[in-house]
């Protein structure tokens, strides 16, 4: 089962994509995605209900968050009320160890995204401040990466034994599915996703067209 684990809709301040338009694009372009996860910036969108779109387009649409920490950006899957009340999602300098601990405690799954990116990637901060215990999984393929960033992510994740997943980081509809994650398990809801991420039985994949 293939899910794009990192997308933004108009709920994010810099997102330009409506969720239904993502669905239309996936079907129109016959992308090999079974669904996608909305990871809005610095918030958790608890109110939007996309079940009618899931039914209409036959896609799994899940909701998560992209929060900002002192070690870069982090995707958090399985956000619930306990986690929302554990720290301020809107802050840009949440301590990474605290976010990891809170996610574990609340039954969620936190993983740094675009770790090879300057300033907002985990490995740039490792160079300056050292590694953080508790990181086990990172986004190794990100659709918004510039040349060299994903290569660094793959290399560093491999050296450190981190599992790697993929996400497009799309903010406009035509970018969805650039990168995604191929799971062994079937995933129907956010609990399934958190469970599948914990197993480590997944692979980062890319469908980005090779630029000539």
């Amino acid at each position: 089962m293939i899910l794009d684990l990192h997308t933004h809709s108009i709920k994010s301040d810099d997102g330009r994509a409506k969720v239904e338009n993502y669905c239309k694009w996936i079907r129109k372009k016959e992308l090999p995605l079974d669904g996608f996860v909305l990871t809005e910036h610095r918030q958790f969108d608890a109110t939007s209900d996309y079940r009618h779109l899931e039914d209409e387009y036959g896609l799994v649409i899940l909701k998560a968050s992209e929060v900002e920490t002192d070690y870069g950006h982090v995707l958090v899957f399985g956000v619930n009320d306990d986690l929302v009340n554990s720290f301020d999602f809107a802050k840009v300098d949440n301590p990474l160890p605290m976010v990891l601990e809170a996610a574990d405690r609340c039954g969620a799954f936190a993983a740094p995204c675009h770790p090879g990116r300057k300033n907002v990637g985990l490995f740039a901060h490792y160079e300056n401040k050292g590694a953080v215990d508790g990181v086990h999984t990172v986004e190794v393929l990100n659709g918004g990466s510039i040349p060299g960033e994903d290569e660094l992510s793959v290399e560093q994740a491999g050296q450190r034994g981190y599992a790697g997943f993929g996400g497009s980081d799309s903010h406009i509809v035509s970018r969805i599915g650039y990168c995604a994650t191929d799971f062994d398990a079937d995933i129907a809801d956010i609990d399934d996703l958190v469970g599948a991420l914990r197993t480590g039985n997944f692979r980062a994949v890319t469908y980005r067209e090779q630029e000539s």
Partner: peptide
Amino acid sequence: VFDKTGRSGTMVF
């Protein structure tokens, strides 16, 4: 008025 971080560092909107 809010802040966010990106490749070029911290930005205030």
